[in-house]
Every structure is written in C-alpha cells, then in structure tokens.
C-alpha cells in the first residue's frame, strides 16, 4: 500500500481523538482519547520510518509508547485520588482552581 494511506488513517484517528477529548466529560474516557491521539502519531512515525527505510522513527514510536504509559499511570492515579475524596468524576465540575 502507498504510504499516504497510512498517513490518512493516522490523520482520521487523530481527529477522532481530538473530538473525544473535547466532548467527553469522564476523565477516564479523556485519557483513552489521548491514547488515540498518541497512537495516531505513532502510526504516522512508523509510516514515515518505512518510507525512508530508516528505523529511527520506530525508536521514536517506542519512546512515545513509554511516555504514554507514564501519562496513563499518573492520570489513573489522579482519578483514583479523586474517587477517594468523593469528588465527582467529571471534568466539568473540577473547577476549584478556576479562580
């Protein structure tokens, strides 16, 4: 398949993820949508690595994978902490820092 097809799939997934981040209110689902966006960027990186026949892009994708895992860990820790404080699991109601 021409490389451009992979880039198109990546762009579509990225836009779907953006839409999810903007509309959903449950922080768990927002984290999932962030994963979607990171995965889309991974797909683009790997597609370009294939295009150039250079494995550097794959290393980049692996590092993105690691950063995504860290982000998930911290995000889920925050959600558990929210739950322990009996706060609503809803980003629209987490506005105490809003000033």
């Amino acid at each position: 398949m021409p490389i451009v097809w992979y880039v198109v799939v990546s762009a579509l997934v990225f836009c779907i993820g953006t839409y999810g981040v903007l509309t959903r209110r449950n922080p768990l689902v927002i984290l999932l949508c962030l994963e979607l966006m990171l995965n889309a960027s991974n797909l683009a990186l790997i597609a370009f690595a294939r295009q150039h026949g250079n494995a550097d892009g794959q290393i980049f994708a692996i590092i993105v994978l690691v950063v995504a895992a860290c982000e998930v860990t911290i995000g889920l820790g925050l959600i558990v902490a929210l739950y322990r404080r009996r706060l609503p699991i809803d980003v629209d109601q987490m506005n105490e820092l809003q000033g």
């Binding site: 021409p2 294939r50 295009q51 026949g53």
Partner: peptide, 14 residues
C-alpha cells in the same frame, strides 16, 4: 515518495 510503497525492504528492518 508518499504515493509509493516506501524504501526497498532490507532484511532485518525493524
């Protein structure tokens, strides 16, 4: 090169 199939495959890539 975007509309092509990418660089020729070398064994051991990835």
């Amino acid at each position: 090169s975007l509309t092509e199939h990418g660089a020729p495959y070398t064994p051991g890539f990835g």
